[in-house]
């Protein structure tokens, strides 16, 4: 189970396709649907090599008909199959969200628990490479907002493999969101911390267990996905400034590991939420509320600080995008601001 057991490193894309392949070998009910998932191997390489291994009956190329194949996943899951459906970019959920939030998410509940929907929806998220407003969003908060969906957002290859296997074995709908800028693609710059040692054997990482990826004492940075990698780089810079940052990688939004967040904030007394989703009505507000609801047990040294996309669509132009999406330096600046904030009167 530990990543010390092997010296083999994989990119996050390789880890994801390996996990899917292992589960397809283990369980004949598992199959994959999506656009360009066959010969192309997935636009973000989540299915590289799987068509050759499993053939077109199980690696199913779909038309550009997201409502069609998402609904197909809902129906097939109800019959006991275990579909994985890929929506190329999370932004494209707009054309098929009904199948997800009105059906996939609710049918277990509305059937009084009589039906289960063991489906995984995979999708690429995030910006940073100038793909503009319709191809750069994160949107995980929208999925986490809807009851009935588990939401997984890994930050590195090791976690991605264990979380993907867990997702496929889960009897509930799981949204598995991979940030394009940590997949280790050969055609997009990425954060190299996301490529790490991955055991060859099968393993799972349970949902709802945040990972304290770096220990610290002065402030807690709660984050996820690519922003974990940015936060680790920021923590290095902060260390040079004499500031000790603890970095909490949430790994999953639903279920959410409130205990680990609280434990860390209880230790540091300062919370910075670093998020690549929109600021308002989302993850950063949710995490802040954990602190607000537990102020009676916490000794906060500063108000909570939220760093996120400032409620604007992701702009195309490089200086605008760099401004809108939190960067390593903006995490550093926010942490310093937090350290300089006045204690409560």
């Amino acid at each position: 189970m530990t990543n010390e057991s092997t010296s083999r490193t994989l990119t996050m894309a390789q880890a994801i396709s390996e996990a899917i392949g292992m589960e397809m070998e283990r369980d004949s009910r598992v199959f994959y649907m999506g656009e360009d998932v066959g010969k192309y191997g997935g636009i973000f390489s989540a299915t590289t090599g799987l068509l050759d291994k499993f053939g077109p009956e199980r690696i199913m190329e779909t038309p550009i008909s997201e409502t069609g194949f998402l609904g197909t996943a809902v129906g097939a899951a109800a019959e006991g199959l275990r579909p994985i459906a890929e929506i190329m970019f999370v932004d494209f959920f707009g054309v098929c969200f009904d199948q997800i939030y009105n059906h996939l998410a609710k049918n277990t509940y509305m059937s009084g628990g009589a039906l289960k929907f063991p489906a995984v929806i995979t999708t690429g998220i995030g910006g940073g490479y100038n793909d503009a407003a319709q191809h750069s969003q994160c949107l995980y908060s929208i999925f986490a907002h809807v009851p009935g969906l588990k939401v997984v957002v890994p930050s590195n290859a090791y976690d991605a493999k264990g979380l993907m296997i867990e997702a496929i074995r889960d009897d509930n709908p799981v949204i598995f969101m991979y940030h394009k800028g940590i997949m280790g693609l050969s055609w997009m710059s990425y954060f190299e911390g996301s490529t790490n040692a991955v055991p060859e054997e099968s393993y799972t990482i349970p949902f709802g267990k945040a990972n304290v990826i770096r220990q610290g004492t002065d402030l807690t940075i709660v984050t996820l996905s690519q922003m974990v990698q940015k936060s680790l780089l920021a923590a290095d810079k902060l260390a040079e400034l004499g500031i000790s940052a603890e970095v909490v990688d949430l790994r999953t939004l639903v279920p959410l590991d409130k205990a680990t967040v609280l434990k860390s904030v209880a230790k540091t007394g300062r919370l910075l939420v670093a998020d690549e989703d929109y600021l308002s009505f989302g993850l950063s507000g949710e995490i802040s509320s954990i602190v607000a609801e537990n102020l009676d047990t916490l000794q906060m040294k500063a108000p909570v600080l939220r760093l996120a996309v400032p409620d604007v669509p992701i702009p195309f132009s490089r200086p605008l995008e760099q401004f809108a999406i939190p960067q390593v330096d903006s995490i550093v600046d926010s942490a310093r601001q937090l350290m300089n904030a006045k204690a409560f009167k």
Binding site: D131, A132, W187, M188, S189, F316
Partner: peptide, 16 residues
């Protein structure tokens, strides 16, 4: 970045 064949986000006209 070392190891990449191509960087979609680089250059004067970045993105897709």
């Amino acid at each position: 970045q070392k190891g990449l064949a191509f960087d979609i986000g680089a250059g004067p006209v970045p993105g897709e």
